[in-house]
Nucleic acid binder design. Structure first.
Lengths: 161, 161
DNA sequence: GTTACTATCTATAAGAG
DNA sequence: TCTCTTATAGATAGTAA
């Protein structure tokens, strides 16, 4: 026969569970994409499979990361105002001294200004909640971009000049 | 009549689009929860609505954040091995020097070892891909945890000692 | 385990109040 | 605009090869 009403509980049988998992992941990703396209909103779903390496993510990072990062670069004033606001923040003397030094070095690299925002957050100079044009998902992509920027900078610095 | 086949494209009519949005958000969240429960996997969907303050997120952060962070604290050895692996990485001389100093200061604060991992990532000593027990979603919570840790540390440092 | 099938359940587009 | 209804498109549980 075909289809019982689903009982919303963990599926005990392992192979049944795996089969259901595969089908539903497909469905969920499709639904996510549809909502995004039909309604013109950003949507993201992340699934941490039982024995897979990394999570399944929609949208796939490549294209979407570029879109969001370019958006950030288009409105630097949001970041600027955050920065100003956070100059009130204080750090312990010794840590502050070293971080200021690091800051100066980083300022030389104008091309990584987007990554700077993330750095501020992690140095406690800003918080997620204060960055209103950002959000959890955006932050994610920016982090990846920053990593690429830093890796690039390391490579360039090492190769000469 | 009822239901046409959906044309997968941005819905031009604003009110139709809104109606569809509301229905589909509900459906998508439900599907996410079902996948999670039925198959015992972690899943997350984030929707950035057209004119809403923050994104709609499943699962709601509070409980889930705590669960994941405590999980990280239960297995510090994963982070340790990552750290060892990444000692091969090099930075430009001037940046490295300053960062080493910063690192020493930070080592004093044993209680923020989880946040340290995130810091390493942003300093280019590690990448998202190398942290296999972590993943995009986990990283998110860790970042928030780190921010709290730093804020706490700043407060404590300032109050005395 | 992986298709492929299909009966049935579920989501939801459209219409009505 | 929201809510309710209903017909139908779409998702998928169970089964078979």
């Amino acid at each position: 026969m075909s289809r019982k009403k689903v009982n919303l509980a963990f599926i005990q049988n392992a192979s049944t569970r795996r089969a259901t998992y595969k089908k539903r992941v497909q469905g969920l990703i499709k639904k996510t994409e549809e909502l995004s396209v039909l309604c013109g909103v950003d949507a993201c779903t992340i699934i941490y499979g039982p024995n897979e390496e990394g999570p399944i993510v929609w949208p796939s990072s490549e294209v979407e990361a570029k879109r969001i990062i370019s958006e950030f670069k288009r409105k630097p004033e949001v970041y600027q105002s955050q920065r100003k606001f956070n100059q009130e923040t204080f750090l312990s003397e010794s840590i502050k001294k070293v971080e200021d030094k690091l800051l100066k070095l980083k300022k030389k690299n104008r091309e990584i200004d987007v990554g700077k925002m993330v750095s501020d957050i992690l140095n406690g100079k800003s918080t997620l909640k204060e960055i209103n044009s950002s959000d959890l998902g955006d932050l994610l992509w920016v982090i990846e971009d920053k990593i690429k920027s830093i890796e690039y900078r390391i490579r360039v610095t090492k190769e000469g000049k």
